[in-house]
Simulated assay, not measured.
Amino acid sequence: MAYGFGTWDANGVDNNTGLVKINALGTMAIDATSNYSQSFSLPSGYSLDYLFQPNADRTGEGRKRISVSGSAILVTQVASTDYTNGTFPNVPGTILAFAR
């Protein structure tokens, strides 16, 4: 007997990927309000991406933008009214960089 659940696309093809492996390249510990830039060595044919995990309470009213530029992750401060993609509250945390 199988456990779990299945999902299918419009053509009836199973698209339940379950857990997806990633190629972790490194981590960046960031505080709430500093700017950062860190480069990573990418394997040929891959692009850089990240996951952000906050680990404390918000500091102040500002926000930060986390972005990828080539093989670097950039963390910059933005206005407290900026809620565009890639922005987060000013909280310290850890960034996990991975190759996609």
Rank of each mutant, 00 (worst) to 15 (best):
Asp14Tyr: 10
Arg58Cys: 03
Gly18Ser: 08
Asn55His: 02
Ile95Leu: 15
Ser39Thr: 09
Leu74Arg: 07
Asn85Arg: 06
Gly6Trp: 04
Thr59Ala: 14
Gly86Trp: 05
Arg65Trp: 05
Ser39Asn: 05
Ala97Gly: 05
Val13Asp: 13
Arg58Met: 13
Asn16Cys: 09
Asn90Ala: 14
Pro89Phe: 05
Ala72Glu: 12
Ile30Met: 15
Ser71Ala: 14
Ser47Cys: 10
Pro54His: 04
Thr59Arg: 10
Arg65Asn: 06
Val91Asp: 03
Val78His: 02
Ile22Asn: 14
Phe98Trp: 13
Thr84Phe: 05
Gly60His: 02
Ile95Asp: 10
Ile22Ala: 14
Tyr46Lys: 15
Ala10Leu: 11
Leu74Val: 04
Leu48Phe: 11
Asn11Val: 00
Ser67Met: 12
Ile66Phe: 15
Ile95Tyr: 02
Pro92Trp: 03
Thr76Pro: 05
Glu61Ala: 11
Val13Ile: 14
Asn35Phe: 03
Thr59Phe: 13
Ser71Lys: 07
Val91Glu: 14
Tyr50Leu: 13
Val68Lys: 11
Gly12Tyr: 01
Thr59Pro: 00
Asn15Gln: 13
Gly93Tyr: 05
Gly70Met: 10
Ile30Cys: 11
Gly86Ile: 10
Phe52Lys: 12
Arg63Glu: 00
Phe40Gln: 08
Arg100Ile: 09
Ser47Arg: 15
Ala32Cys: 07
Gly45Val: 07
Ala32Ile: 03
Arg63His: 01
Gly86Thr: 08
Gly18Phe: 06
Arg58Tyr: 01
Ser47Glu: 15
Ala10Arg: 06
Arg58Thr: 02
Asn85Thr: 05
Ser47Gly: 13
Met28Glu: 06
Asn15Leu: 10
Leu19Ile: 02
Phe98Arg: 09
Val68Thr: 09
Arg63Cys: 02
Asp9Asn: 15
Gly26Thr: 05
Tyr36Pro: 00
Tyr36Phe: 14
Leu74Lys: 09
Thr33Pro: 00
Ala72Asp: 10
Arg100Glu: 13
Asn23Tyr: 03
Thr81Phe: 07
Arg63Val: 02
Ser37Ile: 04
